[in-house]
């Protein structure tokens, strides 16, 4: 395969009528002496779900953490290259990662509610960013976020209970509600269902599908079926390289790369 062909697969046209939300060009990530990501470039559309798949250690989570500069919190991690959200360069010393993270929410693999009440978990972001001037406004934000996360009906009568008292699936939706309470533009999800049972997984997937209407969602998943079910775009990473990126149907039905096909059909990984 020639370089030109490779470029063609990487810069696959994104479907029309969707704007580019995140544009990435030539991103390398080093952890100390070890290079974790090699020259990744891709364009991620708004109002859709983009799934990152690939075997463990392929760099997909590392790449996800570049988008809200969470790699800054790791000692010795160096990110080079260009990452733009709505045309604004974010991989830049002048951008405050704290401000950036207010507009790029993140949901982790294991539900991590804070040791606070359900209400305070959701109100955490709005409080530290001063999004609500009055108690009523804050109540409104909390309620809306819980409604959007499909959790309001289950917890509206026990908002003062600790967040950790909820079930695993509920906790994960609480964490999603916490993320959307600050009204982000992009939501990153790092294997959001891998610690959940199938029923809770179905609920969270349904929620992701609804959230797609308003947010640009980027998720890492180990489940091929999940990528196929909820995502519109899929990127396949292997050994720190972006191997193939395109509309999900195409990746799953007609991959251009041999390695993608092998991985999807379970021949390696």
């Amino acid at each position: 395969m020639t370089t030109a062909q490779a470029q063609a697969t990487l810069y696959h046209d994104i479907p029309e009528a969707r704007d580019v939300k995140v544009a990435i060009a030539g991103v390398d990530v080093h952890y100390g002496d070890k290079q974790a990501l090699f020259d990744v470039s891709m364009q991620i559309p708004d109002r859709s779900v983009t799934a990152f798949i690939g075997p463990s250690g392929c760099g997909k989570s590392t790449f996800l953490r570049c988008v809200n500069r969470m790699n800054d919190t790791i000692d010795g991690a160096v990110v080079t290259g260009s990452l733009k959200i709505d045309g604004t360069e974010i991989n830049d010393k002048t951008i405050d990662p704290v401000v950036l993270r207010a507009s790029v929410g993140m949901v982790f693999q294991k539900p991590n509610p804070f040791p606070k009440s359900i209400y305070d978990n959701v109100a955490y972001g709005p409080k530290i960013h001063g999004l609500a001037a009055t108690r009523e406004e804050l109540d409104g934000i909390v309620e809306q976020s819980l409604v959007k996360a499909g959790l309001w009906g289950e917890v509206s009568d026990r908002l003062t209970d600790p967040g950790t008292s909820l079930s695993g699936g509920q906790q994960q939706r609480l964490v999603i509600a916490r993320a959307i309470a600050v009204n982000p533009e992009v939501i990153l999800m790092d294997e959001p269902c891998s610690a959940l049972d199938p029923i809770a997984t179905a609920k969270v997937e349904e929620l992701i599908d609804e959230l797609r209407e308003n947010y640009c969602i980027i998720m890492v998943t180990h489940s091929m079926a999940q990528a196929a079910r909820v995502s519109q775009m899929t990127a396949f990473f292997h050994l720190g390289n972006l191997v193939e990126y395109g509309p999900t149907e195409e990746i799953f039905t007609n991959p251009r790369e041999r390695r993608t096909q092998d991985y999807i059909t379970g021949r390696f990984g």
Binding site: N68, M70, T73, V98, V99, L100, R101, A102, G105, M106, F108, K110, N112, P113, F114, P115, Y124, G125, I128, H129, V175, R178, A179, V182, L188
Partner: peptide
Amino acid sequence: PQSLRDGSYAMGA
């Protein structure tokens, strides 16, 4: 757990 700190940093704290 580090995940709690990560959760807070990811909220922009």
